[in-house]
Design a protein around this nucleic acid. Structure first.
Lengths: 178, 178
DNA sequence: CTACAATGTGAATAGAGATTCACATCACAG
DNA sequence: CTGTGATGTGAATCTCTATTCACATTGTAG
């Protein structure tokens, strides 16, 4: 697979990070694909952990979303390679069965957000006019463009601040009028 | 630059598309970097064309945004490689002066959207409480996650329909109450 | 202690993609 | 017609990564 060695994703770079020599990686993983798959699994787990967490903390849908937003941003801030792996890596691979893993993770995550929205609509705290799926995607839209700008400016953009501002905007759109 | 040959971005693939042999590309471009730079310029131009276009069509800010959304989606639908080039390619390159080009294009585009929002706020048609930049980023957020899902599902996701639904949601958040 | 499994290493191999180069064609100005 | 510049081609080269392999080292169960 002489392909796509965006430096951060090369076996050599990984080895360096871990304090090994490239060939050493192969004592722990069968191939680079293996490494990526494992990483992806890990990312998936973390995302769903966050969902579980907010569900435990509160039962108010809007509040759950707000917390999830915060957790998501923290997750990405700490593990800056996540967008790396999830996006640039596999979205564009044409085939690759890892594209499927990514799709499952993302649609799964969005599905969880949908459920939260749906519950909010049933309880009457969220507007019923909008499609939960649309809402869920828009929710992701609070973060994604911001992360891109954040990446492009090498962290100079204030992700947290943006997320707070954007949340207010989003809230306006989804909450029922009191 | 033996790096990152996500197939669609390889010189070989480009050559094939154009009906040439790889080496033939070098009669027209000095290097792969040259090709990417030229492509990026083209993308930048198209984005700004769209902005100009909507400004010519109407002076109502919200309407301008709605049209821009439509045009943006059409642009991406037709030139499916745009997210490819703009995102996966350079965002993660670490250094690379192309990252700068991408940043300029994106922040420029967002800047234009900001101006539209600002004008709308001054004219009273858009809420004054939200930061124009936040609004502009959220606007991009209507499209970005959707494009990703669209890519991941190989076009099975209905981008246009989503954009219409999401626009309604977005509109609710930015329009002043009548 | 000792044999065995796990782990780490450097050198060697293999394959992919970018780039170069010497050699055809081809269009066309003179 | 003829020579020159633009354009296209295949083979060869270069570089970068992944991957393998034979050989230490080490930790540990017996």
């Amino acid at each position: 697979m002489g392909t796509c060695g965006v430096d951060a994703l090369s076996i050599a770079a990984l080895a360096r990070q871990v304090g090994l020599v490239p060939s050493g990686i192969y004592r722990h993983f069968k191939s680079k694909n293996d490494v990526l798959d494992a990483t992806l699994d890990l990312i998936g787990e973390k995302l769903f952990e966050n969902v579980k967490l907010v569900q435990k903390k509160t039962s108010d849908s809007a509040e759950q979303l707000r917390m999830l937003l915060k957790l998501h941003i923290k997750l990405i801030s700490v593990n800056r390679a996540i967008p790396h792996i999830v996006f640039s890596e596999s979205i564009y691979s044409g085939s690759s069965y890892r594209k499927n893993s990514v799709r499952n993770i993302i649609t799964g995550y969005i599905g969880e957000i949908e459920k939260i929205v749906l519950k909010g609509q049933k309880s009457g705290s969220l507007r019923k006019e909008v499609d939960p799926k649309t809402t869920a995607l828009m929710f992701m839209g609070i973060i994604l463009p911001a992360v891109i700008v954040w990446k492009l400016t090498d962290g100079a953009f204030d992700l947290v601040r943006h997320s707070e501002d954007a949340w207010l905007l989003f809230k306006t759109a989804i909450l029922t009028d009191q």
